[in-house]
Design a protein around this nucleic acid. Structure first.
Lengths: 411, 411
DNA sequence: CCATATAGTTCAGGACATAAACTAAATGGT
DNA sequence: ACCATTTAGTTTATGTCCTGAACTATATGG
């Protein structure tokens, strides 16, 4: 009548719960305490014992393993006029990192993220990806990845894994992109091996909005464990963080706000549906409503977007009402989503963040009209994530996996 | 940067991961294997060892504890011409049960549910709860509960806990009902102690739709671990099952489909918003659209509902179009919800199930229009849960908790 | 130079799961 | 009647891991 109890599943995916599992859990526990402290705190073994509620003896033993695995390093003694034996600081090994990558419509990007989540190096390469084949794009990304791998080696950094974010629906298990309409990809298998150095400890594939949501998480207050990230790009994506974890739903595509119905009698969407949010608040929809739509001999999107901002700055119609209509629709979709997820914080990213000043009033008004009882307590924020958001989020999530399963690296 | 790792949290909510936790996990594992087998299979210790991937020795020891805790009982040897020492069957103790209760608009109900999830006894008491005070309702439920407790005692059943479902938003931790507009409750604290015998091992409070979703889970195929249950009562509620677990969101109110916006320019809802699903597909909304609305001297709702069915059977307008409009709106809300949750099965309960034959065509058409890409693979079912659904679901969930944490009962 | 204080390690002890040996209780052939 | 065979369940020796207490290491300050 029930699934195997969660506790049992937590041990090691179905394996019998034996004494060794306790160590796995405690390795992760110690590591999470170290990670939570941040890099400047330099916790001692004694501190960790207190924070983790383990004994000094256990912590000592566990830390020995983590040091051997290269996940943690000891750092110079920190003395400031206190009695007693000086403590030895422990921090996440700064010489380990994860490769984060992103393929988007107008660029590819890659970067190195260390175990504390810090972006050490990155490179963004503008590239018209929708006008070349998937394998060309992947080849270009492979080259970019090679450059960053070389950079890592030059700095003595060991790459432990990688994460890739793409603007579309992904199947993480099979490393396939199911749909990425804005890239022109329909069913694309990714050659993961070409992107990472051997032996690749871990590779994960992310939807761009989900990866951005994970990156956004680092910028939020520590208590803010639940929020919806709405990514306004060519399409409108969403990433949902529940209880500090990414919620992706049964097939991994939850949070997709772009196809929430906001106007039953609205326009037909690229998904075939009618009245989706994307038909009013997607980039092309806004541009079209502002008389800057894609046409036979229209300018490239980036240029038309610049024109949109110029028009907005100048206070011109129909740009203003195009954006305001988008805001109104966004408010409707957000009202429904907040209700369904029971989340009260929304973070807007991508063009929604950039359009904030023109869009927010309409969106807030719309939320007030359609969900007055939650409008008051809802926190509507705009993200400050830049172009590296998605790759950082993808990498950081892989880092999180590594830190949650350190026993994989302890021999 | 991260919450304490899930694995660590799973041990025992923050307690240090020590060897004793392994036993807790394995007690639960053994119990879940026994529960999963159902009552007719009568697994032997050897069977359990195989299914749980634990050794015979461990299972023997664990079963000894479970027998001592009274969660499991041995059942007569089962022989049918096979060689070898006969096995001793193990089943969930049939002499243990949980008290399930429900308060709804038109009735109160209570029942006894055993550890296998079977409803052993129940009583439904029609009662116009909206026209009496909360404490009167609770007193009546207390009496009902007393009767079932007496019945349990008469049958030698020990009550291990209880669950109560109410049609409104609840705060499980504080045992308060935040909103139950259809009961006329605004902020109501529940005196839990009065409802259960001492010592109450466990008491939980549920939203009615969530409880029904949990009950529905038992009726689904074993693989169907993800679905949205939509409860059409006076209000429209929802319960979301993800990965075989109830998903309630950060504040515990996720899944509420009733206030999804399906018509931006629609009617004003009781929640203050505009165009909520409930303004078209709620019981009163349907009745009003069928010219059977509540008025100064209108008949009681139950009677008007009967009139609605008569009109539908007779194929009369405006009843038919009222229901069809409701179906259309329901399709829109479901389209958005399926997208946001990435779930592909929906189960309709309450009046939606009863209205199926008149409502389904419009709903399916609407889903096809607004989400053609998922309409094909979506499974739309109608529930066969009766009036006892919510109380069974609430009780079953408490049973699940007990089975997942058997160490609480092992001395 | 020694009392004091704090950090970290060592060691005996206990709880568990495991594997293998062992006991228990049936069937079936001779 | 007897014994080989088969399966169920228990006992025992072993190893892992955490724990608490004793112990070592290394600083400060009078």
């Amino acid at each position: 009548m029930r699934q195997p109890a969660t506790t049992a599943r937590a041990t090691t995916s179905g394996a019998p719960g034996n004494v060794a599992d306790v160590r796995k859990a405690n390795l992760a526990r110690v590591l999470s305490v170290i990670a939570a402290a941040g890099e400047d705190e330099r916790l001692s073994r004694a501190d960790i014992a207190q924070l983790s509620q383990l004994t000094k003896a256990s912590v000592s033993s566990l830390v020995t393993d983590l040091l051997a695995a290269g996940l943690v390093t000891e750092i110079g003694v920190h003395r400031d006029g206190e009695r007693g034996r000086p403590s030895v600081g422990l921090v996440l090994n700064p010489a380990r990192c994860v490769l984060g990558m992103e393929i988007n419509v107008d660029y590819i990007a890659a970067g190195l993220v260390d175990l504390s989540g810090k972006l050490l190096a990155h490179e963004v390469l503008p590239r018209a990806n929708h006008s070349s084949t998937a394998s060309e794009v992947l080849a270009a990304l492979g080259e970019l990845s090679q450059r960053l791998q070389a950079a890592a080696q030059a700095q003595g950094l060991m790459i432990l894994g990688g994460g890739l974010a793409v603007p579309g629906l992904v199947n993480e298990e099979h490393f396939t992109v199911l749909q990425a309409p804005n890239l022109g990809w329909v069913q694309q298998e990714l050659d993961v091996a070409a992107l990472l150095p051997e032996p690749k400890t871990r590779f994960r594939l992310f939807n761009e909005a989900n990866a951005s949501a994970l990156a956004q998480q680092q910028l939020m207050d520590a208590q803010e464990n639940d929020f919806l990230f709405v990514s306004g790009e060519v399409g409108i994506g969403g990433g949902l963080i529940i209880d500090a974890e990414l919620f992706v739903g049964p097939q991994g595509h939850a949070g997709e706000l772009g196809h929430v119905v906001i106007a039953p009698d609205g326009k037909t969407c690229s998904c075939g549906g009618r009245g989706c949010l994307e038909t009013v608040a997607g980039q092309e929809a806004i541009l079209a409503a502002a008389n800057l739509g894609a046409g036979v001999d229209s300018a490239p999107r980036q240029e038309r977007i610049s024109q949109l901002y110029q028009a907005l700055e100048a206070g011109e119609e129909p740009a203003l009402s195009a954006v305001s209509e988008a805001g109104k629709s966004l408010g409707i979709a957000v009202a429904s989503a907040l209700r369904l997820y029971n989340v009260s914080t929304v973070v807007f990213g991508g063009h929604f963040a950039a359009l904030e000043q023109w869009m927010r009033p309409a969106m807030e008004a719309s939320l007030q009209v359609h969900a007055p009882s939650i409008a008051g307590q809802a926190r509507l924020l705009c993200s400050t994530l830049g172009q590296t958001g998605a790759l950082v989020g993808a990498a950081r999530s892989v880092v999180g996996d590594l830190l949650e399963a350190p026993y994989q690296l302890v021999d």
